[in-house]
Computed example of a mutant assay.
Amino acid sequence: MLDYKIKIMLIEDEDFDVRRVRNTIKLFDQFIAIEHVTSNGMDALEMLNKKPDRFDIVIMDYQIAGALRGEELIRKIKDINRTIQIIVITKLTINISDFDFAKSLMKAGAFWYCTKYPGDIEEYIYQPTDFLMSIFNAYDKRRLEMETYNSSKKLIRNVDEMLEKKKIISVSEPMEKLKNNIQRLAESDISILISGPSGTGKELVANNIHYRSKRKFENFVPINCGSIPPDLIESELFGYEKGAFTGANNSKQGLFEMANNGTLFLD
């Protein structure tokens, strides 16, 4: 089981339903903790803004007191922290299946929703097994999104470091025009011809285009075409499969394949 306690914020303005939610998760209170209970959306946002990483899951009543509720509140919570998962509980869908309502919640950013048990069921807010499973599943989704987010931050940091290393320092008007062209070309997917005498920085320009483009997280593959013997250029560029010719004991990935979705710089 978990070696971590799932931290929940509960947004609910009826004490009766706060008690029912607590009772429903009490079976697994060694793994789940309600860290904060509030009855209005503004208080919830204030708490989340102060400590955006404190909570893993928000369980919220769709209809709470105050103007800030429902889909608007879901969107504002997601604006603070995209990885927080939101479970909606509501009385609106008793005895009906409202697919448009469900679609609206999911579009706003909710993970799951359920219909509250009628008031004559005093112990639980919803079927305990399903409710608890939704909490554990929501936590798994948050954990995966956090891993993706942290990986993306690391990639962005690496790209920023690469751009700093490949920084073009200039004050002249022609070079400023070049930098503007680099930014403009980085926003396109067209093939680009970079011309200039040897040693003038063609690869530097290519690097800057690559790391400013949407391909920046993929490979930048520079090729010194003059260093490849004519009889090897096909296998270097396109690779080959095992057994394709005598001596091909293993498959070899071509440079075009290595640069797929990235940038291939032919020098």
Rank of each mutant, 00 (worst) to 15 (best):
residue 16 F to Q: 11
residue 197 P to E: 15
residue 29 D to M: 07
residue 31 F to R: 03
residue 221 V to P: 00
residue 135 I to W: 00
residue 40 N to K: 04
residue 251 S to M: 01
residue 73 L to V: 02
residue 206 A to E: 04
residue 258 M to K: 15
residue 72 E to L: 10
residue 16 F to N: 12
residue 127 Q to N: 13
residue 173 E to R: 13
residue 194 I to H: 03
residue 234 E to V: 12
residue 190 I to L: 14
residue 183 Q to C: 03
residue 28 F to T: 01
residue 215 R to F: 02
residue 241 E to K: 14
residue 233 I to F: 07
residue 143 R to Q: 12
residue 189 D to N: 15
residue 24 T to P: 09
residue 160 D to H: 09
residue 146 M to L: 15
residue 182 I to L: 03
residue 107 K to L: 11
residue 228 I to W: 03
residue 181 N to Q: 14
residue 130 D to Q: 01
residue 242 K to N: 06
residue 162 M to E: 13
residue 112 W to L: 00
residue 195 S to H: 11
residue 91 K to L: 11
residue 45 L to S: 05
residue 127 Q to T: 10
residue 50 K to N: 13
residue 237 L to V: 02
residue 131 F to Q: 01
residue 227 S to K: 11
residue 168 I to V: 11
residue 169 I to K: 14
residue 68 L to A: 03
residue 258 M to R: 09
residue 202 K to N: 10
residue 235 S to A: 10
residue 119 G to C: 05
residue 177 K to N: 12
residue 81 N to L: 08
residue 141 K to P: 02
residue 118 P to F: 08
residue 16 F to T: 13
residue 117 Y to I: 05
residue 53 D to N: 13
residue 1 M to T: 12
residue 98 D to N: 15
residue 168 I to A: 05
residue 158 N to K: 13
residue 70 G to K: 01
residue 72 E to Y: 04
residue 106 M to S: 04
residue 152 S to L: 14
residue 89 I to T: 12
residue 63 Q to K: 15
residue 117 Y to V: 08
residue 263 T to H: 07
residue 266 L to P: 10
residue 90 T to N: 05
residue 198 S to Q: 04
residue 194 I to Y: 06
residue 85 Q to Y: 06
residue 2 L to H: 07
residue 9 M to A: 14
residue 128 P to H: 03
residue 121 I to F: 11
residue 220 F to H: 02
residue 178 L to I: 13
residue 199 G to V: 08
residue 109 G to V: 07
residue 258 M to W: 00
residue 63 Q to Y: 09
residue 42 M to C: 05
residue 129 T to R: 09
residue 211 Y to P: 07
residue 76 K to T: 04
residue 256 F to M: 11
residue 7 K to T: 08
residue 110 A to D: 00
residue 192 I to G: 02
residue 44 A to K: 01
residue 207 N to I: 06
residue 157 R to D: 14
residue 240 Y to M: 06
residue 151 S to F: 09
residue 103 K to Y: 06
residue 15 D to M: 15
residue 11 I to Q: 04
residue 195 S to Y: 09
residue 212 R to Y: 05
residue 13 D to L: 04
residue 48 L to E: 05
residue 233 I to D: 01
residue 201 G to F: 00
residue 5 K to D: 02
residue 5 K to E: 11
residue 44 A to G: 02
residue 6 I to F: 03
residue 252 K to D: 03
residue 244 A to H: 06
residue 53 D to Y: 09
residue 79 D to P: 00
residue 213 S to T: 02
residue 176 E to N: 15
residue 181 N to C: 11
residue 109 G to T: 08
residue 94 I to P: 00
residue 192 I to A: 01
residue 165 K to L: 14
residue 241 E to R: 12
residue 76 K to W: 03
residue 46 E to L: 11
residue 117 Y to M: 11
residue 53 D to R: 06
residue 205 V to R: 06
residue 69 R to F: 07
residue 37 V to I: 15
residue 158 N to A: 13
residue 67 A to T: 09
residue 36 H to E: 13
residue 33 A to C: 10
residue 65 A to N: 09
residue 67 A to I: 10
residue 28 F to H: 09
residue 12 E to D: 10
residue 267 D to N: 15
residue 248 A to P: 05
residue 13 D to K: 00
residue 73 L to S: 04
residue 55 F to L: 12
residue 127 Q to R: 10
residue 101 F to R: 05
residue 51 K to N: 14
residue 111 F to A: 00
residue 175 M to K: 07
residue 253 Q to W: 04
residue 162 M to T: 14
residue 155 L to E: 14
residue 93 T to D: 06
residue 25 I to H: 01
residue 65 A to C: 04
